[in-house]
Computed example of a mutant assay.
Amino acid sequence: MDYHYPIDSSWSTEETIIVVEFLALVEKAYQGSVSRAELLNQYRAFKEIIPSKSEEKTIGKEFEQASGYSLYHTVKKARNGVSEQITMP
């Protein structure tokens, strides 16, 4: 990993951990596979911290520019998928 996760300095330590754990799952989906249920549960926790769609898009864009991994496409695949594991191309 040669990049940094997009972090807001106004988040508490607990909030930062939740966001980082979610982004790490997105990363893991691209590097192998991740549990669909775990990803969706972590996304729900992420949305409690980032309820705004525009802020979610901003974080997703920053993360994708830094890593090449799409938050949007990963969550979309998890929501629409039926398999227990999510693997991104």
Score class of each variant (00 low, 15 high):
Lys61Ile: 01
Val19Lys: 08
Val75Phe: 01
Thr74Cys: 03
Leu40Glu: 06
Ala24Asp: 09
Gly81Val: 01
Tyr3Leu: 08
Leu40His: 11
Ala37Pro: 01
Val82Ile: 11
Ile86Asn: 07
Glu84Leu: 10
Val34Phe: 06
Ile50Ala: 11
Tyr30Ala: 05
Glu38Trp: 01
Thr87Asp: 12
Arg44Gln: 12
Ser52His: 02
Leu71Arg: 01
Met1Ala: 13
Met1Cys: 09
Glu38Asn: 00
Tyr5Gln: 07
Arg44Glu: 15
Met88Asp: 05
Glu64Trp: 01
Phe22His: 04
Leu25Lys: 00
Gln85Cys: 07
Ile7Arg: 11
Lys57His: 12
Ile18Met: 14
Lys28Arg: 09
Ile49Tyr: 05
Ile59His: 08
Ala78Asn: 06
Pro6Trp: 03
Ile18Thr: 15
Lys28His: 04
Thr74Asn: 04
Ile17Val: 15
Ile49Trp: 02
Ala78Gly: 04
Ser12Pro: 12
Val19Ser: 13
Arg44Asp: 15
Thr13Ser: 15
Val20Leu: 11
Lys76Ile: 05
Ile7Cys: 12
Ile59Tyr: 05
Ser83Asp: 08
Glu84Phe: 08
Asn41Gly: 13
His73Thr: 03
Glu56Cys: 13
Ser83Glu: 04
Leu71Gly: 02
Lys57Ala: 12
Ser33Tyr: 05
Lys76Pro: 07
Gly68Ser: 00
Lys61Thr: 10
Asn80Glu: 12
Ile59Met: 05
Asn80Pro: 01
Ile18Tyr: 02
Pro6Leu: 05
Glu21Asn: 10
Tyr3Phe: 15
Lys76Ser: 09
Ser10Val: 13
Lys53His: 12
Glu55Ser: 13
Ala29Pro: 00
Ser70Asp: 00
Ser52Asn: 12
Gly32Lys: 11
Thr87Glu: 14
Asp2Arg: 11
Trp11Phe: 14
Ile17Glu: 13
Trp11Val: 11
Phe46Tyr: 14
Glu64Ala: 00
Asn41Pro: 00
Ile49Thr: 09
Glu48Asn: 14
Glu84Ile: 13
Pro89Met: 07
Gly32Val: 03
Gln42Met: 11
Thr74Lys: 00
Trp11Ala: 10
Ala78His: 02
Gln42Lys: 13
Glu21Phe: 11
Ile50Val: 15
Tyr30Met: 07
Gly32Met: 02
Ser33Ile: 04
Gly68Gln: 00
Arg36Tyr: 04
Ile59Gly: 14
Met88Arg: 06
Gln65Ser: 08
Phe22Ala: 05
Glu55His: 13
Tyr43Glu: 03
Thr74Val: 00
Leu39Ser: 03
